[in-house]
Structures are given as C-alpha cells and as structure tokens.
C-alpha cells in the first residue's frame, strides 16, 4: 500500500490507527491532528447528504440522520469529485439499515429526494411549443400513434407509501399538523420535474401514473391512454395532459408520417 492508500483507509475507518510517518513540529500527538482530516472528510460528506435529503433528515431528526449518513459515507464514499450527484444508493442503504426499519416509507422518501436532485441538475430542454401542440392537434387522425418526448428533468417514482404527502407536509410551515393527517400506507406516484428554475413534485392519480409510465416506456398516446383507462376508470386524460404541460414535462409530440 502506498502512503495515499494508508491515509485514505484511516480517513474513513476510525478503527484504523492514525497512519505512520506523520509528524508535528512540537511533538504533539499526530493522531489528534490527523483527526482534523477524518473530521473534514466525514462531516463534509454528511453535510452534502443533509443538503440533498432535507425531508429524510427532518423525518428522523438530525442526530439520527447524521449518524446514519456517516455510516453510508463510510460504506459508500463518493466515486466522483462531483458531489452534486452524491447520494445515489443512499435509499438502498437506508433499506438495509436496521435501526430505520420502523419507518418503511423512509427509503422511498429518500429516493424521491434524490430524484429531485437529479432533476435539478438535469440537462436543459425547452418544453413543447404551442405551435407544435397545435400542429399535433391539427393532425388529429395520427394522434393515437403519436409518441411523446419528455424533458431530461422528468422523473417518475411509484411507491406503496404516501411519499408525496409526506414530502409535501415538510414544505409547510406546519409540518407536524399536516403529517398527522397523512395515511402513510397509501400508495402514491410522484412526478418530479424541473420547469425553468424550480423543481416541482406532483402527486399523480393512479390512471395518470399508468399513462405517464406507459408513455415513458415508449407506448403510443392511444395505447397508453387505453391502458390507463383500463386500470383506472377515473383516468382524466385532459387533466393529466394539462398537468404535464404545466409541469414543463413534455418536450415534443412525434406524430407518425401520414401514409398516402
């Protein structure tokens, strides 16, 4: 092992002794000075997670969150110097983290927060123009086979838990009151999308969730809408499309070339 390797191993594992070969001018204990680096590394990475997962932190409290995040940092330090995207894998870690097992919804809340981070930094793309929409509408006969294109800042997450309500309650001034009204075991699907400079999170009704999932999987407009109706008689295609347009989620509508 070279000097970097020995140093690096001791940074993350407090059970590993201070690396050999460190010195201090006054003969003070190098281990205590080395602890400054240990602290910087771990605290800096835990801070990065706290910034990306604020609702996860509020749910479990700062003390618990930081202890849990520290375990994650040690188990899965960043593989890239770009910390903006650090934390992918945190939700899976929480799933396997037994002290948090009492909160079965916690991994999906963390998943939702990571999708928000990814949407925040995703590539820019202009939403579909009114002209393009009007053109698609004018070629109405080709709409059943039309395929929707979506902006890169769109993400979808289906959960057996009320993740959107849990998340939304924490954006309120009165989180405690709102949380009391959340039935955590209600399945919810979240739509995460950046529109201009803001990332919004929407709760999708079951039919809307099926419809969007179908479109994202490459189904045509007609096929996705039919499947959504089949699964949810309440499916409202107009309201769903309005939501997607308002969210800035749709980048374009590709209609098949008309056969003559």
């Amino acid at each position: 092992m070279n000097a970097n390797a020995i140093f690096a191993e001791a940074l993350l594992d407090p059970a590993v002794p201070c690396p050999p070969g460190l010195a201090s001018w006054n003969g003070s204990d190098p281990a205590q000075r080395f602890a400054v680096y240990r602290n910087n590394v771990v605290v800096g990475l835990v801070d990065a997670l706290a910034d990306s997962f604020p609702v996860t932190q509020e749910l479990v409290g700062e003390t618990f969150f930081r202890a849990m995040a520290r375990e994650f940092v040690r188990a899965a330090p960043p593989r890239s110097p770009v910390l903006a995207l650090y934390g992918q894998g945190f939700a899976e870690f929480i799933e396997s983290f037994s002290p948090a097992a009492g909160l079965p919804y916690l991994p999906d809340v963390a998943r939702l927060e990571m999708l928000r981070v990814l949407a925040w930094h995703a590539a820019d793309a202009a939403p579909v123009s009114r002209q393009a929409l009007a053109a698609a509408l004018a070629a109405a006969e080709s709409l059943p086979l039309a395929r929707f294109e979506f902006v890169p800042a769109l993400r979808l997450l289906a959960s057996p838990y009320a993740i959107v309500s849990l998340w939304a309650a924490h954006q309120s001034e009165n989180a405690a009151l709102e949380l009391a009204g959340v039935a955590t075991d209600t399945p919810q699907t979240a739509l995460v999308c950046r529109h201009e400079l803001e990332v919004a999170i929407y709760r999708l009704a079951p039919g809307a969730a099926d419809f969007l999932a179908g479109l994202l999987a490459g189904q045509s407009f007609g096929a996705a809408a039919s499947a959504a109706f089949a699964g949810d008689p309440e499916f409202d295609p107009a309201a769903t499309l309005a939501l997607l347009l308002g969210a800035g989620a749709i980048a374009g509508i590709a209609t098949p070339r008309r056969m003559s």
């Binding site: 709409l143 008689p233 295609p237």
Partner: peptide, 21 residues
C-alpha cells in the same frame, strides 16, 4: 368501455389540456 380510444377523443383531451395549461 372501448379499449381503443378514438383519435377524436384524444384530440379533445389534448385540446382541453392546452386550454387549461
């Protein structure tokens, strides 16, 4: 219900969505 939506109904949905948006 008819499992295959007509082009007309999809157009109405899209047109309504555009006016809402």
């Amino acid at each position: 219900m008819n499992q295959t939506l007509t082009a007309a109904s999809l157009a109405i949905a899209l047109g309504t969505a555009m006016s809402i948006a």
